[in-house]
């Protein structure tokens, strides 16, 4: 008997086989590591898990991480909004070049992103002697961690907003202009409401990356325990000292952050899919 499935899909056994293969790949590649984080963290029991989270050094790492993200995310959000407005609402010479500059950090290793700041502000860097004279610390201190984080995470908000605003066009903004609205008013009551979900996801992703950044921060922080160790760096220190359970306990915080980010992303897609993808 010939199969009766539609011409644009495969026969049922092939379909099931492919689904099983995809589920296997995703399970092995993605799900297993996620489960492993929690399994390793709880390997020696809840007590040790909670004790590791209560440790003072863990707390100061969390605080530093929050501070670094709290400074770099707003900056990058501001940049993302500004860059997205610039390249989607105007056409100008050098626009394509600007767009590729925004993508540049994707092709730069986080380690190099840290290195450049060391070369500028480190003890042997260009501004090193001047900074030392004025007793300003950038490298091996919070400012260094923030600028390194900014470098690595700055495209995220812009990358989320640019395609969104490009696809929405400028009709609504132009309508607002003919109705006499000024720049700030247009942005606040016309543009912002229609990009809020994309903006939210961009900020969230930027935040997840900022809190989780390792390579760049590792280069500029100097690994001073209780002072310049962010959460990912603290995890590294614990791991290298063979305190595996403690390392994984701290890792669960970041893994949960990742899960929350993904959860909100799915939610946002679900919500905005209903309001903006409707056929007119």
């Amino acid at each position: 008997m010939s199969s009766t499935h539609h011409v644009t899909t495969e026969s049922k056994p092939v379909r099931l086989l492919l689904i099983a293969a995809a589920a296997f790949i995703l399970g092995l590649f993605l799900l297993l590591p996620l489960v492993a984080v929690f399994a390793e963290a709880l390997r020696r029991g809840w007590e040790l898990f909670l004790a590791s989270l209560k440790e003072e050094e863990a707390w100061s790492a969390v605080k530093l991480t929050l501070m670094a993200a709290g400074l770099s995310v707003p900056l990058n959000t501001l940049f993302g909004l500004s860059a997205a407005w610039l390249v989607t609402k105007f056409r100008f010479r050098g626009r394509a070049f600007l767009l590729s500059l925004i993508d540049l950090p994707f092709a730069v290793s986080p380690v190099i992103a840290g290195l450049v700041w060391v070369l500028l502000f480190g003890a042997h860097g260009w501004f090193g002697p001047w900074l030392a004279e004025h007793d300003i610390r950038i490298i091996f201190a919070l400012p260094g961690i923030v600028i390194a984080t900014v470098f690595v995470t700055f495209p995220f908000v812009a990358r989320e907003l640019i395609p969104l605003m490009e696809s929405q066009g400028s009709d609504q903004e132009e309508a607002a202009v003919t109705l006499g609205a000024g720049g700030w008013r247009i942005f606040r009551s016309v543009t912002l409401p229609s990009i809020k979900w994309g903006l939210m996801y961009g900020v969230l992703l930027c935040n997840a990356r900022a809190m989780g950044e390792f390579g760049a921060v590792s280069v500029v922080s100097g690994h001073i325990r209780g002072e310049t160790n962010t959460l990912p760096l603290h995890i590294e220190v614990l791991y290298n000292e063979y305190q595996f359970s403690a390392a994984f306990a701290c890792a669960t915080i970041l893994a949960l952050l990742a899960l929350v980010t993904l959860g909100i992303k799915s939610l946002v897609e679900h919500l905005s899919g209903h309001s903006s993808n409707g056929r007119h």
């Binding site: 009709d171 609504q172 409401p193």
Partner: peptide, 21 residues
């Protein structure tokens, strides 16, 4: 004179209504 001060009523081809209002 900028568009907002010209006193023109403009109706866009696809209306450009503010979707969230």
């Amino acid at each position: 004179v900028p568009a907002g001060k010209r006193g023109v009523g403009f109706v866009f081809q696809h209306y450009a209504l503010f979707k969230h209002m």
